[in-house]
Computed example of a mutant assay.
Amino acid sequence: MTIELKTRPRSLENHSEAKSIRRAGAVPAVVYGYGIKNTNVAVDEIDLIKALRENGRNAVLTLELGGKKTNVILHQYQKHPLNGELVHADFLAVNMKEELETEVAIRLVGEPKDKAGVLEQVLYNVLVSATPSNVPESLEIDISKLTIGDVITVADLTTAKEYAILADAEDVVAILQAPQKLEEATDEVAEAAEPEVINGGEEKE
């Protein structure tokens, strides 16, 4: 499926122009990469957000630049720290037949079998190598069988022949730990049970 986004050219980056573009509901952006020189453009913010929401962060987008259609992926973006609006976007032009390396989000699916455990996710993204159209939107792992002490590693992530995961198979993704409060309470009980030594063993006159 081709996801086309309309663009309009813009001049070199400057603060006043960027503000004007954002007021008009667009996002200042730059396109670079395969077969293209750095090109400054503006894209409609709503169209961009909708395309990514419906097709994923690693979706291949098509931009029309100078009458030519260019395949790109969203390489980086910046958001306003207060209102969350897109401030700037970097699009990477790609060769659809050539593998690239990009980060893919890890999603934990389900609820742990042991409800008393505390789930801690250590790794949220992993580097993947694939052609642009084969980059997965996310990598999922079912956690419904986890009990306290169980550990999920990169080796447990969903794999496919269309992409390769570029991370150590033993890297920890998540762990189901015992509740901290329960451990602290156990320690307090143990300390209270220890015999108290009075006068350090000195003889009393």
Rank of each mutant, 00 (worst) to 15 (best):
T2K: 05
I3D: 05
I3L: 11
T7D: 02
R8K: 08
R10K: 00
R10C: 01
L12Q: 12
L12K: 12
H15N: 11
S16Q: 13
E17L: 14
K19V: 09
K19N: 05
R23E: 03
A26G: 01
P28H: 02
V30S: 01
Y32P: 12
Y32S: 09
Y32H: 03
G33A: 01
G33E: 00
G35P: 06
G35A: 11
N38Y: 05
N38V: 10
T39R: 04
N40K: 07
I46P: 01
K50N: 12
A51Q: 12
L52Q: 02
A59W: 14
V60P: 11
V60M: 02
L61N: 05
T70D: 01
N71P: 12
V72A: 03
V72E: 02
I73P: 08
K79N: 09
H80P: 09
L82W: 11
N83M: 03
N83A: 00
G84A: 15
H88K: 07
A89E: 04
D90E: 06
F91T: 05
V94F: 07
K97Q: 13
E103I: 06
L108C: 03
E111I: 12
L123M: 14
N125E: 14
V128P: 08
V128H: 08
T131L: 01
S133L: 12
V135Y: 03
E137I: 14
S138A: 10
L139N: 09
I141A: 10
D142W: 14
S144M: 10
K145V: 07
I148N: 00
G149E: 02
G149N: 01
T153M: 07
V154S: 03
A155R: 10
L157H: 03
T159A: 11
A164Q: 12
A169N: 12
D171H: 11
A174M: 10
Q177W: 11
K181Q: 12
K181T: 12
K181F: 06
T186L: 13
V189K: 14
P195E: 13
E196N: 07
I198F: 15
N199Y: 14
N199W: 15
G200S: 00
G200L: 02
G201Y: 00
G201T: 00
E202R: 05
E203N: 07
K204A: 08
